[in-house]
């Protein structure tokens, strides 16, 4: 898409705000609609948009596939690990009260932020990984074919 000047300029303008919005949805999920899942998808969309307009090789330089795969596993690990931590602290699995026994409310909020982060990381990485998998096998398409 080298000659689509408008698309390239608009994409450059949009990628930053999309990432910022994803972070907002991620960390504001307790107060407004949204949460890890939606934030992860939006975060991935920024990379996919970038990849569609600037080419797969460019976006792979920004977010290499091996790193994407590691992040997909890391999110699950954070989620499951939060549960393990609460077991270590002598409570039930995924009972966030244990994270801060003096103030269970704070413990709950901390636990929710931690697992939402795990959800967001996994979802974003998985979406990017699936996009890479599909796009890597795509032959280059001429603009006239669409």
């Amino acid at each position: 898409m080298r000659h689509h000047l408008i698309l390239r300029v608009i994409t450059k303008l949009l990628v930053g705000p999309i990432l910022l919005f994803a972070l907002y949805v991620q960390f504001h999920g307790e107060y407004s609609p949204g949460g890890g899942f939606q934030a992860g998808v939006i975060f991935a969309v920024a990379f996919i948009l970038f990849g569609i307009v600037f080419g797969l090789e460019t976006v792979k330089k920004v977010f290499p596939p091996w790193l994407v795969h590691k992040f997909a596993a890391l999110g699950v690990l954070i989620f499951a690990g939060t549960g393990v931590v609460s077991v270590m602290l002598g409570s039930n699995y995924l009972n966030y009260n244990a994270l801060n026994p003096d103030n269970p409310q704070l413990g709950q909020v901390g636990g929710i932020i931690a697992i939402e982060l795990g959800v967001g990381i996994t979802v974003a990485a998985v979406m990017v990984a699936i996009y890479y998998a599909f796009a890597s096998r795509t032959p280059m398409i001429n603009d006239e074919d669409w």
Partner: peptide
């Protein structure tokens, strides 16, 4: 329990944490 306004988030990540995992 949590003191957060979005009940959906509370249900998804705490009350139903297992399902979300």
């Amino acid at each position: 329990d949590m003191g957060i306004p979005n009940v959906v988030t509370a249900v998804l990540s705490s009350y139903r944490g297992f399902d979300t995992l």
